[in-house]
Design a binder for these strands. Structure first.
Lengths: 169, 169
DNA sequence: CGGGCTTGGTTCAAGTTTGAAGCAAACCTA
DNA sequence: TAGGTTTGCTTCAAACTTGAACCAAGCCCG
């Protein structure tokens, strides 16, 4: 079958997206590197942890939530642990497992970094969009995410989350 | 001044965007790595070169077009040169300058890789979007790009391009 | 129980990216 | 036209990412 090339409209959209996403990640990484000494991904790890009730998450669950590979997460958490922002505990119920826990210092760093980060995201993105465009953005990328991993299989259960006992330490 | 946090709508849009862009780049990188032995950026370098009349571009111009830093480009071109897909020539009119030239083999590799790449982009993105969404995508990200670099200053002139003489070799 | 398979996570080597220097050619400007 | 600044690009070390092993703990099934 002959290739279905991109239409001119699609070309333009694709190029606009590629260019902007590179610039955007660059901008955000640089800002966070400056003000928090870590790249965007590492900030996101802290942020994700901070949103759970116990500020802890299984490594795999964290990796899935962030859409990154496990080796990448292992490396990142090792660094954050060295900096004292995250602690690693092994999971009681599954001795293979390990759990990343946000430390108090991690919370502090996150809270210090958050305003600047949000400001950057606003300045680079949301301040330039109409409310309709915000909706469009969400729709488009939600659909893309669904396509790219929805096919891979739905979310599965995560052992420790179903306990409400104090910890997996 | 107190931080203007993201609204729930903005939160959702932002997260959708982050997740999807990670998955998308991952998908595309993996596909190109498999079928062409190079990541997306390297493919884009070849593609950019192939679109110029002489299949050549000054390093700086290439870096600006791709929205990447110069060291990054230097490294990437070095690799492509080692693989024989790109050749480096020094610019006659500006002895500091160097010019990346797409080789015939580079063209061949690019043409072999293009169909699979386009198919991946389609499957991951455009096949999931309505025509209106394609337009929205372009508008949103064109505006973001403008915001992130338009402020930095407009495009400047590039010496060799203004010549129509056969080469800068 | 006792093998095999799967799962959760880490480790390792190779490749890539980053930011700060470094270097040489061009461009002032007096 | 000499001296200082800018520009174009590369180099370097440190940080990060990738994919392929690897290892141990759970799981399955007889």
């Amino acid at each position: 079958m002959t290739t279905r090339w991109l239409s001119p409209d699609e070309q333009r959209a694709w190029r606009a997206y590629i260019a902007a996403s590179l610039l955007l990640e660059d901008t955000i990484d640089r800002q966070l590197q400056q003000e928090a000494g870590m790249p965007h991904l590492y900030y996101s790890i802290l942020a994700n942890l901070s949103e759970t009730p116990e500020r802890r998450l299984r490594m795999t669950e964290l990796a899935e939530g962030l859409k990154i590979t496990r080796p990448r997460l292992t490396y990142a958490v090792a660094r954050l642990e060295k900096d004292g922002l995250v602690r690693r505990e092994s999971c009681q119920w599954d001795k293979r497992g390990s759990v990343a826990v946000l430390t108090d210092e991690g919370v502090a760093v996150l809270e210090r970094a958050a305003p600047g980060h949000v400001e950057t995201v606003r300045a680079a993105l949301f301040d330039r969009l109409t409310p309709e465009q915000v909706g469009q953005l969400e729709e488009i990328f939600t659909s893309v995410t669904a396509g790219l991993q929805g096919e891979g299989g739905p979310a599965e259960e995560v052992p420790w989350r179903r306990r409400s006992s104090p910890s997996c330490s």
